[in-house]
Design a protein around this nucleic acid. Structure first.
Length: 578
DNA sequence: CGTTTGCTCTTTTTT
DNA sequence: AGAGCAAACG
């Protein structure tokens, strides 16, 4: 039987092992795609506990709730004991916890919809203006800027309205703790509580989050940041890679460990994507070695239009679906050149630059009968505001009365009926998340509900990803970060979409290249880059060129496929008839 | 007053 | 293409 330490370090390579065991003082882990970043963090948490650090002294900050959940599960499985006292969560979850601990009264977290709602009262119900204001406010809060003179009034009034409703917006969940930390005793308390901090995706941290961490970690804290400057894709949201690059200056004496071995993708995919990203000038030198050899060439496919694009993807998926499936028997052309391993639907992802592309892809998938899940975009649960939900629930609770409540009415039933009234039914993600969070045995107090609802606000909408569900995943390049699939299709690999350019186009080519890099490196076995020769998007018909990024991939890694125009197809079919 | 029609406008990424 | 918005209509 292996001892605990050996088990924690089992299967790690040299640098992963270093990153796991360097538990004192600041540490920066540079981790390219597929280098075992999550594995390393999980083992590090386990190692900390093994070294006698109490679980409640560990804070692991992730970028998405999905990542937090995965980390939680993997750590628990490794240690085979209760690790619920380790705080693993997003920045916002961490902030929510801190605000909760230090706020004597109830409060509600307002997500985007509520935020815009408030602003509507200030802009004569003009949605567009309210949304623009919401964006500006968010920018101010994320960048820790003052905003320009003219906007100060709006900002102040918005803040007053929030206060009146005891509400915090998402950005406040970072800002409020920063304010609270001005109280030295509060700050001290959290510094003592979170003695070991691990931050994932550090390259995507914005000034507010940076400030928050800086305060929490102190000057010589045990802070371990993990990230990859080549995967920084959230500049638009205030993220600043400079924080990552400056880490060693910020925390003198920091160690730097680089994870350079990619275990995820075939050599073809690793090398091809690496050649692409080398075109960025603003990066820290980093070498990445593929562990796996060879691999199929990357298919660059040219198709007539966006419909054909989705049909092409559907065909390729059907051709790869396991032998017993009726999909293959019914639809797929006979293929000899496919990988031995049978695929299930969850091995595929279709990734695109804009949510606007999702609709037409979804249509073709729906028609094909292939099960798929579209992540992100607009959510059903967002059809109601927090205040509406709370009001309805309070009404219900008041009508029932406390006595009958405990005896014949469960909190589940109460919530279900309240939500139904608002058109949110049991199948809604909002409902399901809420139910999973509300403790069943607990007193059915409004407080419990509020806490749960505040958490749900943070869980929506981008975390609707269940890797166990056997369906193809459709999502944007941004939401793809951190995930991996056997076969990845990037749709709309066209100039204007990738890199994206608004008309006039003052675009950030390097950030777009990183985004494309993130997309490419999601693939384990096969990668398809599909571009349409004509595309109608936003009501306009365009005849786009293939993305200039494709030319940055050396030809030896590429095979091309061309789907002929529809007209030609028909003509060919007719010719066959004669 | 509520609904419908037509005109105009923009059009990324999301915790 | 679709949403927002204003004017016009019933």
């Amino acid at each position: 039987m292996m001892n605990a330490e050996a088990r924690i370090l089992e299967g790690l390579n040299g640098s992963q092992r270093e990153a796991v065991t360097a538990i004192n003082g600041p540490l920066m882990v540079v981790a390219g795609p597929g280098t075992g970043k999550t594995l390393t963090i999980v083992r590090r948490i386990a190692y900390l506990i093994y070294q006698g650090v109490r679980p409640e002294h560990i804070l692991a900050v992730t970028f998405t709730n999905r990542a937090a959940q995965e980390m939680q599960q993997r750590t628990a499985a490794l240690l085979e004991k209760d690790i619920t006292k380790v705080f693993i969560g997003t920045f916002h979850m961490t902030g929510l916890q801190i605000v909760r601990d230090n706020t004597p009264h109830d409060f509600v977290v307002y997500a985007r919809k509520d935020q815009v709602n408030i602003l509507m009262t200030m802009f004569e119900d003009q949605v567009r203006k309210a949304e623009e204001a919401a964006d500006r406010i968010s920018r101010i809060k994320n960048f820790l800027e003052d905003g320009d003179e003219g906007f100060q009034m709006v900002y102040k009034q918005y803040q007053t309205l929030l206060n009146e409703e005891n509400a915090l917006d998402l950005d406040d969940l970072i800002l409020r703790p920063i304010e609270m930390f001005r109280d030295a005793s509060i700050l001290q308390r959290y510094r003592e509580r979170f003695r070991h901090i691990i931050v994932d995706e550090y390259q995507d941290i914005n000034p507010a989050q940076y400030r928050f961490l800086r305060l929490l970690a102190g000057d010589n804290g045990n802070i371990c940041v993990v990230g990859d400057a080549d995967q920084a894709i959230y500049a638009f949201r205030g993220a600043d890679v400079a924080n990552f690059l400056n880490f060693e200056k910020d925390f003198p004496g920091a160690r730097r460990i680089t994870l350079s071995h990619n275990y995820r993708s075939t050599a073809t995919i690793v090398n091809a994507s690496d050649m692409l990203i080398q075109n960025n000038t603003h990066r820290i030198g980093r070498t990445i070695y593929p562990v796996r050899e060879g691999g199929a060439q990357i298919t660059v496919a040219s198709v007539p239009d966006e419909k054909a694009e989705s049909e092409f993807i559907v065909n390729e998926i059907e051709a790869r679906i396991g032998g017993t499936s009726h999909y293959q028997l019914l639809n797929a052309p006979h293929r000899h050149d496919l990988p031995e391993t049978a695929c299930s639907f969850s091995d595929f992802a279709v990734i695109y630059r804009t949510n606007a592309q999702a609709e037409s892809i979804g249509e073709v998938f729906r028609a094909s009968g292939i099960p798929f899940k579209m992540i992100g975009s607009r959510y059903i649960a967002e059809k109601r505001t927090s205040s509406e939900i709370i009001e309805t629930l309070k009404d219900r609770a008041a009508n029932i009365g406390p006595a009958t409540f405990t005896q014949s009415f469960s909190i589940e039933e109460l919530i279900r009926s309240a939500l139904r009234e608002l058109g949110i039914d049991d199948s809604d993600l909002f409902y399901q998340l809420l139910m999973s969070i509300i403790p069943r045995h607990d007193a059915p107090a409004i407080q419990t509900f509020l806490d749960a609802m505040n958490m749900v606000q943070l869980l929506l909408p981008a975390d609707d990803f269940d890797p166990r569900a056997d369906s193809v995943t459709l999502m944007t390049l941004h939401t793809g970060k951190g995930l991996e699939f056997k076969v990845v299709f990037i749709a709309g690999v066209e100039d204007g979409l990738i890199p994206y350019s608004l008309r006039g186009g003052h675009d950030d080519t390097e950030e777009e290249r990183r985004l494309f890099y993130v997309g490419m490196t999601r693939a384990k076995e096969e990668l398809f880059l599909v571009n349409a020769r004509s595309r109608s998007l936003y009501g306009r018909n365009t005849t786009p060129c293939a993305s200039p990024f494709i030319r940055e991939i050396p030809e030896i890694f590429i095979q091309t496929a061309t789907v002929p125009d529809r007209a030609k197809k028909r003509r060919q079919k007719q010719m066959k008839l004669f």
